[in-house]
Design a protein around this nucleic acid. Structure first.
Lengths: 254, 254
DNA sequence: TATTGACCTTCACGTAGCGTTAAGGTGTAG
DNA sequence: CTACACCTTAACGCTACGTGAAGGTCAATA
C-alpha cells in the first residue's frame, strides 16, 4: 500500500505540514518521489511514523526521537528514564505554581484575612527569598531575625487552627455521611455534599488534590479492612456508600 | 535611586536582554533615556518590575501580565482563575504522560511479563483508541467486541490480583513497622523499609505519588483519631513512629 | 478539450521569551 | 591615551509546526 501526504496524514491523524516537516528534518523520509515530485510513503514509513508518534505522545522532543528511531543501538530505555525525571521535575514545578496561584487567588478574594495572610509561611518565605535575591543584605539587616521569628510563630498558630478546623470538618463529614446513608442514594444532594466535605477535609493533608487520587482513596476505604471498619462502625455499608458517592463526585467510572 | 539596565537586572535577577525586551513590547518602559540613549529606571519602574516578575513566576504570559499591570481596572482575579484551570489541565496531561512513560519503561525492561502486559487496560485502550483513530472502522470490524470483552475480563483479573497483592503489602507494612517500632529509631534501616513498603502500598491507590502527599497522609494518621487508633492498636505510639519514618523517608521537614 | 476542484509542491513568515553574537558608541580609571 | 566595562540597535536561533501564497498535477466532468 502506498500513500501520499494527505492519505498518510489522515491515517495518522496529523497534518500534511507535519509530514513535510518530518521530511525536512530527516526524521521521516518518503520511500520515493513520483514523477511529479509527490512524496510517496510505503509500509515501512507507516510503521516508523507510528513509532515516532508514540514517542511524541510521551512528550519526547523530535531530536531525541530521531536518535531513538534512527540508531537501533540507541538506549531507548535510558532516554525514557531521563525523560521521566524531567517530567517529574516539571510536575513538581507545576504543583508549586498551582499552590501559589491558589494562594494568590485566596488573597485577592479576601477569603483570607490580614492575620491569615501571614500564615502563608511558604509564600512569605518565597517573598523573603525573592527580596533577598533582589536587595541582598539590605532587607535582611532591616527585618532579619524579627521577620523569621514572627513567621515561625505564625506557623505554629496555623497548625493549631488547622487542627481545630480539620477536626470540625471530619465530624461534619461523618454526620453528613450518616444522614446521606439513610436515604441510600450516593448520587443524592446530601451524599454529594458529604463527598465534597470529604474532599475539603482531604485538602488539609494533600498538597495537591486530584480526582483520581480522591477516587483511589475512597476505594481504599473499602479494600482495606482497617479503614473499612472505621467507616462502618456505626452503620455497616457506609464505606461502600462513601466510595460510591466519591466516585460519582469525581466522575470516576470503573 | 536610578538604575541602568545592568544594575536593575542584577537586582531583579534577570538579564539585560530581558529588560530591553520588556521595553520593546511596552511592558516596562524606562523612566527616561539619558543623553547617550542609555535606559534609566527609577523607583516606580522597580516596583512595576516586581509585579511583572511576580506574575511571571505564576506562569502567566507576558501578554496577560501586560493587561494586568497596565489596566488597573483589569480583573486580575478572573485572569488568575482562568490561569489556574489551565494549570490544572496541564497537570492532568502531565500525569497521564508520566503514567504512560512509566508503563513503557516497565515494558521495555521486561519487569512485566507477557501476560501482565495485557493488564494495562488503560494502555491497551489507548492503543485501541489510537488504532481507531488511524484505521477507522477496519480494525473494529476485525477485532471489535472480541478485544473489548477480553480486555474487560483482564481488568477483572487484575483487580483480583491487585487485591491480593495489596493485602499482602499491607500486612508486610504492619509487620515491618512493628519490628521497627521495637528499636525505636524512625531513621533506622528497617523503619525506612517500612516507609518504603508503605509507599508501595499507597501507589496501588494513588494514580500519582508525591512525597508531599505521602508526608501529608502520614501526618493524617496521627491527627485523625480514627486512623491513629488502628496503627496504635498493638503498640501505642506506632502512628507517630510511622509518621516520623515517612517524614524522614520523604525528606519532609516541618 | 477545456475547465473545475481537489490534490500536490516549495518558499517563507509567525509563534514566546528571550539567548547570543556582531558591530559600534560611551564612561571612567590609570 | 588607552584599557575595559558598560551601553546601544539589529538580527538570527530555538520548538514544532500553522498558515497563507504562488504555482504545478490529476481525475472527473461539461
Amino acid at each position: 500500500m502506498e500513500y501520499t501526504v494527505q492519505k498518510l496524514g489522515q491515517m495518522a491523524g496529523i497534518s500534511t505540514r507535519t509530514l513535510r516537516y518530518y521530511d525536512e528534518i530527516d526524521i521521516l523520509k518518503p520511500a520515493r518521489m513520483n514523477s511529479s515530485g509527490y512524496r510517496i510513503y510505503g509500509q515501512a514509513e507507516v510503521d516508523r511514523l507510528q513509532q515516532i508518534l508514540f514517542f511524541r505522545e510521551l512528550g519526547i522532543s523530535l531530536d531525541k526521537i530521531k536518535e531513538i528511531v534512527t540508531d537501533p543501538s540507541f538506549d531507548g530505555a535510558k532516554a525514557l528514564k531521563e525523560h521521566r525525571e524531567k517530567l517529574l521535575d516539571k510536575r513538581k514545578q507545576l504543583d508549586l505554581l498551582i499552590a501559589n496561584v491558589e494562594k494568590t487567588i485566596a488573597l485577592t478574594e479576601g477569603r483570607i484575612t490580614m492575620s491569615d495572610k501571614e500564615k502563608f509561611e511558604g509564600f512569605k518565605q518565597k517573598m523573603i527569598d525573592e527580596n533577598e535575591k533582589k536587595y541582598g543584605k539590605e532587607i535582611r539587616d532591616k527585618y532579619g531575625d524579627e521577620v523569621v521569628n514572627k513567621s515561625n510563630e505564625k506557623v505554629k498558630n496555623m497548625t493549631q487552627e488547622q487542627h481545630n478546623e480539620v477536626t470540625r470538618l471530619a465530624n461534619e463529614v461523618t454526620e453528613t455521611l450518616a444522614k446521606a446513608f439513610k436515604n441510600g442514594d450516593p448520587a443524592s444532594e446530601i451524599a454529594q455534599k458529604a463527598a465534597d466535605l470529604h474532599k475539603k477535609w482531604l485538602t488539609f493533608y494533600w498538597s495537591e488534590y486530584s480526582k483520581e487520587a480522591h477516587a483511589g482513596l475512597a476505594q481504599m476505604y473499602v479494600d482495606d479492612e482497617r479503614f473499612k471498619a472505621y467507616y462502618d462502625k456505626e452503620q455497616p455499608g457506609t464505606a461502600e456508600f462513601l466510595r460510591d458517592a466519591v466516585h460519582i463526585y469525581t466522575g470516576f467510572r470503573k
